[in-house]
Structure formats: structure tokens, C-alpha cells
Amino acid sequence: MSARAEIFADIRRALGVTGREAPRRQTVEARLAHTPKGIVPARGAGGDGRQAVFRAEAERVLASVVELSNPAEIPTRIAAYLADRNLPLILRMGDDPFLAALPWQSTALAISQGPSDGSDPICLSHAFGAIAESGTLVLLSGPANPTTLNFLPETHVVVVKAADIVGNYEEIWQRLRAAFGKGAMPRTVNFITGPSRSADIGQTMQLGAHGPRELHIIVVEG
């Protein structure tokens, strides 16, 4: 008997079932099909206040947040952010169409495209969404926004549209299902809640453990 068959036999013996009982199968199929929602905290209720909740929660976990009314402002604001911190005016990003359409030529930023090999100090991503409840960004893998951009740089700048901020985790599942189909997921979905940190050394919290030391979020209207 294969290890798989033995483990299934052991589980079924322990539970006193055969695996063929129709009511059990129906229970499981129904739960997988209907994905019932559990408790959603009031903080994640959504509505008009969600952008303010998102901002407050993201700042609580030490991300910095700016809110812009016009996407055309994004390049100059990023250039100013980097200049303020004496960081080089270079930026790595994927081939996200929304980011690609921004007026980069109006700044001195040197833009390169593609995944990161670890040599890019600053990377830019466009988030699939954001979650007010916990101040979390949601990023998806793929050529538009390669996953390596999220983890290898020292500074990660993330653009999210105000309309893509939802109240809670459950709303993100709905949006993922709408975009990819029920039961399907992109290869990687990253929930990012603040910059990388560790308290493993001497029990004191330090930023920038393996991932970015700084997380700068740009919320944009339109």
C-alpha cells in the first residue's frame, strides 16, 4: 500500500468513517462551494471610512502613506520622496500598464523593467488591492508586478487605487474570485502589512530584516 493510501486509511479508521458517506461528502462540497463567511470585525466594515482606516492601520505598522488625487502626480512625488531621503533616483518595476502609462519623463527617475536580482535599491509595484482592517496591501505575482520586487529592495513603493481599498479580507477573496475564477489563485498572493522586521535578536524590534526597510504607500484617486 502506498503511504498515501495508508494515511487515508489511518485517518478514516481514527474517525470511524469510510470516506464514502454521502452526508459527509455533501457537507464538505457545500462548504467548498459556498465558502461561508465567518466573523468580520466592525473595523473592516468598509464603506466611506475605509480609506481613513486603511491609512491609520498602515501607519500603525510603520508604513508611510500619501494620498494623491491625480495619477499624473505619482512620478514627481516618488522622485521627491527619494530625494528627501538622499536615495538614488532609480526605480525598478514590472510591465504593469497603469504604471507604464504614468508621465515618468517629467522626472529625473531612471526606470528599468523586469524582476529584481537583488541589485535594485528601490522597487515600485501596483497593488491589486488593500485592506483597511489591518492596513494590508495585496500584491499578485506575474509580469506586471514580479514578486521579487516586493522583497529584495531596501525601499518598496506601492501604488494602490483608492477604489481598490476594501474593508476586510473577505472582500479581497471576492475580488480574487471575480478576477481569476472560483477556487483559482495567482501563483503568489502577498499580503504586506508594513515593512519587514524582526525581534529575534535581543527581543528588540528592528526594521528591514530580509525584506524592505521602508514601505511607502501611494493611494491615488481615479
Binding site: 492601520e57 505598522v61 482592517e133 489591518s134 492596513g135 494590508t136 505575482s141 506575474g142 489563485m185 495567482p186 501563483r187 503568489t188 498572493v189 502577498n190 499580503f191 504586506i192 502589512t193 508594513g194 515593512p195 519587514s196 522586521r197 525584506g211
Partner: peptide, 15 residues
């Protein structure tokens, strides 16, 4: 923490 910094959902290899 409300949530750890990184919660990652991995589903299969490179697409």
C-alpha cells in the same frame, strides 16, 4: 500584531 508583516499564499509553480 494584528497580522504578521507578510502573509503569503503560494499556489503551484511559475505560470
Amino acid at each position: 500584531q494584528d497580522l504578521s508583516v507578510y502573509t503569503t499564499f503560494a499556489t503551484g509553480p511559475r505560470r
